[in-house]
Structures are given as structure tokens and as C-alpha cells.
Amino acid sequence: MSLLKPRFLTSQAGLGLVISLSILALALLGPWLAPHSPVALVGPRYGAPDASALLGYDYLGHDVWSRLLAGGFSLVWMAAAASLIALAVGTLIGMTAGFFRGRFDQATLWWADVFLAFPNLILVLLVVAMLGREPWLIVLIVAVAFLPGVIRLSRSVTLGIAQLEYIEASTMMGYSLPRILLREILPNIATPLLIHLGTMMSWAVGILAGLSFLGYGVEPPAADWGLMVNENRAGLQIQPYAVLAPAVLVALFALGTNLLAEGLGRANAGIKEKA
């Protein structure tokens, strides 16, 4: 049993990796492979699939397959950017709080808890409704919404490490603060943070697709998976591919990143148990 377990776990992480990479490749290379322009009207409204349109036509007569290929890029880069920004900023704040403890730590935690009480999607909707739907703004807001989680996580793992003797030793040697935080502590807390990055990616996909669906994300007529679901839902019964295809891709991307994160997390825990 002890032999089967890790193999199963790595296969789960492996499956997640394959799915995530495929979606990533589709989203990044898609715009160059699309047979039609995503905004060109090339067929009848809700037209059925034919030789030049594999998945049929949407509510205005765009080629669904072309829009699918072109519509992933916005979702992928925004999800990745939001998660990475949250990870970088949150880790720095969390590590500093966990290392110094005291007042700064308490203040940080207090703010993080207040923010955590806000539902992510509502917070993003609120800000977008007030300030507009610029992609960089959405990325920033999603990142801010993710911050408290990263701060809490990085702070708690730092707390455990900061009391160990090798960190005490570097304090006694008089190493600079950036050195202690980035070179001594960060490598030792990287694994749980990277796992959290994967989880955040799948959350971000959900939020961003939801935002587009609600009409607060990418602006039409540009192609976007979440937007496509919204645009074509009236024709669901006539031309289901126009809704199902983007929905399946969003779900797969979220699933892939989640499987990857979870698989890595479990594999890591397994290694720790052994040691």
C-alpha cells in the first residue's frame, strides 16, 4: 500500500499538469490558429456546425471555434497575473509579520481578517461597478481580494520557521533583513505557497469567468469564455455548443490547476511524513 500511494498521488498531480498545460497552450496559441477572426460575422445566427465552423455559429453569426481559440488568452493571463501579484505581495507582508510579530503582526492580521470577511466576488463587482472594467484594474482587485489568504498562510508558516535556530543564527550574525526573509526563510516556506498559488489560479478562473458572464469583465465584441456563455445562453437549446464549449474549457482549467495544487500538496505531505 505504501508503494501504491505516492504513485497514485503523482498521477493526480500529473493529470492536473496535463490539463492545465493543454488549456494554457490552447489559450496562448489559439489566436494564431483560429480559421476566422473572432469578430467576423461569417454565418447565420445560432447556425449549426458545418465544414468551415466546427462548433457552429453564435448569436451574431461569429464562428464559435474561432472565438473559443481567441477567448482564452484574457482569462489565462488575468488569472495568472492576479494570483502571482497576490502571492508576491502577500508573501512579503506575511513573512514580515510572522518574523517580527508584535504590533505590526497584530495590525496586519486585523486588516486581513476584515478583508477576509468580504466575499471575493462582491468586492470585485463593487469596485468594477464604481471604477470601470479595465483589465488591469480587475487583475488588481482580484489580487487584493486574494491577499488576506496569502498573508495568513505565509505568516503562519513563517512563525514556525522563524523560531528555528538557523534563523536565530542569521539574526545573531547580523544578516540584513531582506537576506533573512528572502534567502533564509522563503525557500523553506515555498512549497505551501506554491500549492496555494495553484488553488488561487482556479479561484481566479471562477471569479473572472463569472465576472465576464455578469457583464463586468471583458468588453464585447472581444472574445472571452465567460462572456461567450452569457452571450449565447438565449440560444442554448438551438446551438448548445456555443455555451457548452467555453463552459467546459473554464471548468477544465479550474479543475486542472486545482488537481495540480492538491496533488503537489499531498505529495509534499507524504514526503514529510516519511522523513
Binding site: L164, E165, Y166, E168, A169, S170, M172, M173, G174, E184, P187, N188
Partner: peptide, 19 residues
């Protein structure tokens, strides 16, 4: 500072495992 050096009780925790 470099003239006073400290050695810890637990050798397993005194060195950074990632270096």
C-alpha cells in the same frame, strides 16, 4: 559581532535545510 559566535543545542535545526 564576528568575534562572538554562538553554537546551538540542536544541530538538526541550526543549519538552513535548503542551503
Amino acid at each position: 559581532r564576528h568575534k562572538i559566535q554562538y553554537i546551538f543545542q540542536n544541530p538538526y535545526q541550526a543549519l538552513n535545510p535548503r542551503h
